[in-house]
Nucleic acid binder design. Structure first.
Lengths: 212, 212
DNA sequence: CGAATTATTGAAACATGTCAAGGATCGTGG
DNA sequence: CCACGATCCTTGACATGTTTCAATAATTCG
């Protein structure tokens, strides 16, 4: 369910990612209801997207139904870059999200910006490889909470726009394990869970220690 | 232990990656003995490298000694791209490897090539995320064997330049588990192991099925 | 308020890790 | 060329973390 909206400058409060806005031709913001497909696997590539508000997940599902979320994107972040003409992952809104399409305007500066987007994506993916490959459940969850907090600019209170299942598919765990670990951290006094979707970082130092 | 060598065109048989050779200023080939550091974590960035022959691993070690190998690079492949001024991973030769430095020559075309390198790296990292996050040991090893075979252009006989421990740290497993899985695949008739470092893909279809 | 979805918790099964021993391979020097 | 030590690989037994299945609780939405 898509609803075209009109306001065009609400992202001013976020970093103008890599100067890309100056050189792309940004469209109006499109509103995606929670769980809506933004683009599908196999779709043609060619345009980038910017999250205006809300959260986006980039996913892939294997033949037998296991899902891996390769990244989340929050307000102000850019996604949709692919190496060739076909999309290898599909993108969905996690919650109600506003997405702006960035159409490529031919030009050096836009390419420069695309390069920055690619580098940022590469860095994130490599960081995530480390988490998926060599960390246990507790370390994964700690790393996730700190990452979300940083990207939200949150000092103590993290707003989890995604559900446990999304976190699990991002971290390579079952959602039950994610739930158990959050409970364990809560009991240890490291976090508080005032609401299912709000995590308060009580002992940030401990989380950073756990993250490794 | 480094030894400067002189031959400059032995990579002609490999794909001229993204046309980068035409625009960079390639140096002579430097020979790195097995297990030699090519660059360290924290080193300044700025130049790319091309594998002339042999294998390179890109690694990171956590505080308590767990290592994650984020990528292997084989002959003809380019590595060394980073998002900022500091290297976040370190690069080592796996076996005896010849490495060519690609110094950035200012210019549009080189940047274009860097972009291609970034995209390729991003794609690989994302593929690997899927493997690390959602595949079990057998699937990981199957995916690894097929990936190496493809990149070596090998039909049946895969030459494993790296040891079990490297494979394990790449796949997020223990080296004992890697060994056990190889044995299991051997007993199942899916592969043969004529030599510790040679894997014959007897039933490629089965491996592809296992990979998912 | 009630139904549907999502989250938590428990118990048992399973895959993988850890520790330990023995075997294969490799490089070196006699 | 062989013998030796060092390194790497394999295999076994057991410990552990995570998954799975199942039941209950909390939350969301109409």
């Amino acid at each position: 369910m898509l609803i075209q909206t009109k306001f065009r400058n609400s992202s001013a409060r976020f970093a103008d990612n890599d100067g890309i806005l100056a050189f792309a031709q940004p469209s109006a913001v499109t509103l995606y209801e929670a769980g809506t497909t933004i683009y599908g696997q196999g779709d043609p590539t060619g345009q980038l997207y910017m999250v205006e508000f809300g959260t986006v997940r980039l996913c892939r599902v294997s033949a037998d139904g296991r899902r891996q979320i390769s990244a989340f994107y929050f307000a102000g972040e850019i996604f949709g870059l692919e190496a060739d003409q076909q999309r290898h992952f599909y993108a969905e809104s996690v919650d109600s999200a506003g997405i702006r399409v960035l159409r490529p305007s031919q030009g050096d500066k836009f390419n420069q910006s695309m390069f920055q987007v690619a580098l940022k994506g590469l860095t994130r993916a490599q960081e995530h490889l480390m988490v998926l490959g060599r960390q246990n459940g507790t370390e994964k969850v700690a790393a996730f909470l700190l990452d979300v907090a940083d990207r939200q600019g949150a000092d103590r209170l993290v707003e989890l726009s995604m559900q446990r299942c999304d976190i699990a598919d991002y971290l390579g765990l079952s959602f039950e394990t994610v739930s158990r670990i959050l409970t364990k951290l809560k009991c240890a006094g490291t976090i508080r869970i005032p609401h299912v979707k709000q995590i308060e970082l009580v002992d940030r130092g401990e989380l950073e220690y756990l993250r490794g």
